[in-house]
Amino acid sequence: MKAWINQHRRAIGVTAAQAWRSPFSHLFQVLVIGVAILLPLLLHLAVQNLQRLGGNLPADARIALYLAGDATGKDADQIAARLKAHPTVAGHRFVSREEAIKDLRRIHEIADLVDALPKNPLPDAFIVRARSSAPDDLEALRREAAKWPKVALAQLDAAWAARLDAGLDLARALAAGLAALLAGALLAIAFNTIGLQVVNRREEIEVCRLIGATHGFIRRPFLYAGLLQGAVGGAIACGLAALCVEWVNRQLPGLAALYETNIVLLPLAWQDVISVTCFAGLLGWLGAWLAVSRHLWRGGPA
């Protein structure tokens, strides 16, 4: 146990000494890894924030209920009562056919056209605001309301919500694909850089094997180097992502004022920072393991 700790302490010392001897090449490698990880990370951040902001935008998901032509004021009252009692309805507004035609007439280009109509062709309508903007919930509510008596047509006024959702799904898939590609790239980077270190130190490795070093002993400093390289790269990527969010947030007040909302991008959660760093470290470790193992297996019995 004691010996084991000493061996690890030594391996860490060797790794640190290596990094210290050529700080710039190590720094550069780590930066390359960091920038590579940054891309999918930013995509992930964008998805997360869009999803969150999508729920906050002033234009809530709405359903329009158009009443039948023969619906009376009593029918309208009944529907209003149903809406008021409905658990997934956040609010509703009644738009009478008179109001609707007045609105229409306000649009100058077609005012004459509207005046020329023999009778008001527009139905009474309810504009219903749903509590949830999830497309599935909206669709369920629309279908239910469409069956109510004297409701001629229930129309989802939330095509944009579905589109946003589909877009987010796509972006999420893209981020996952990029992350998978990147994991492969990270493995290859670690395999190459650590493989180079192995070649540079092959004499030392040979001597160590000759005087009784186990494969584990020989691998250890390289594994630490790979782990460190990956983890620092991951941490750098998280730092760069935080800088990006900060920069965007500084540009945002102008945009937010335009839309009369207070939009702020959320930075990476600390859980994300930890998992990105750990995962990158793990990949570096794995790449290093492969690089040293290849060398050892080629080396023959000695």
């Binding site: 004691k2 010996a3 084991w4 700790i5 000493n6 061996q7 030594r10 004499e203 030392e204 040979e206 001597v207 160590c208 000759l210 005087i211 009784g212 070093a213 002993f217």
Partner: peptide, 22 residues
């Protein structure tokens, strides 16, 4: 089979490193 980038002391210490000597 000496390690020429390590000091005399470090060369001799190598076998002890391998066994995890304090």
């Amino acid at each position: 089979k000496l390690l020429y980038d390590r000091s005399v002391f470090d060369n001799v210490q190598l076998p002890l490193d391998i066994t995890g000597f304090p």
